[in-house]
């Protein structure tokens, strides 16, 4: 201990407190400690009053505002949604089919089987269709929006626009592949 310290100790050693040999000095609380304490209390009151009683934006308002922006982005995307010819061009594009297959493996396989033969969800390789007539745009709608009653999730919010188109093209490419253990046909036969 430096000399300075012991001099200070003498200055603040002015209490008679003693418990089981433990004595107490009476140094003042550090200035920075006191200042931050007062500032945090003043800030705390100000913050609460602003966000609760005045115009502070509530969390729900902020969420709504941000969702509106995102909705606008999505509308833009939807308005230039893919056409039948857009996607049929992808059928002869090996890179697009490969990307579609990757999406299929990650998202669709667990319900539609590893070769699209159907499992929890319907067989995708036969020419029976439950929703629409099996056109690329019909498949796109199902993948994009989902089918709530049947447990088909909407993938629009999850996949990017390119991934959506690619996986639709990949599903179309499964037509007539006759995998092993196919699920029985469901829906309407489209010739």
């Amino acid at each position: 201990m430096s000399k300075n310290d012991s001099k200070k100790d003498n200055e603040f050693d002015n209490l008679s407190h003693e418990y089981d040999g433990i004595r107490e000095y009476d140094y003042p609380a550090p200035n920075w400690w006191q200042i931050i304490f007062y500032v945090s209390i003043i800030w705390g009151i100000g913050y609460w009053v602003y966000y609760t009683l005045y115009d502070g934006e509530t969390l729900r308002h902020r969420l709504d505002r941000e969702l509106v922006t995102i909705q606008r982005e999505k509308m833009k995307e939807a308005s230039n949604g893919p056409s039948e010819s857009d996607m049929s061009a992808l059928l002869s594009n090996p890179a697009a089919i490969a990307s579609g297959k990757e999406v299929f493996t990650g998202k669709c396989l667990s319900c539609h089987g590893d070769h699209g033969q159907g499992l929890i969800g319907p067989n995708l390789t036969d020419n029976f269709w439950i929703h629409g007539k099996g056109t690329l745009t019909d498949i796109y709608t199902v993948v994009d929006k989902g089918v709530a009653d049947k447990g088909m999730p909407p993938w629009g919010p999850i996949l990017s626009a390119a991934e959506l188109k690619n996986v639709v093209a990949f599903v179309k490419s499964l037509q007539g592949t006759h995998p092993a253990n196919p699920k029985a046909p469901q829906g309407e036969e489209i010739k």
Binding site: I22, E24, Y25
Partner: peptide, 11 residues
């Protein structure tokens, strides 16, 4: 440590 507590006021 066998030393007095730093600050009674602070406590």
């Amino acid at each position: 440590v066998n030393k007095p507590v730093y600050s009674y006021r602070l406590s």
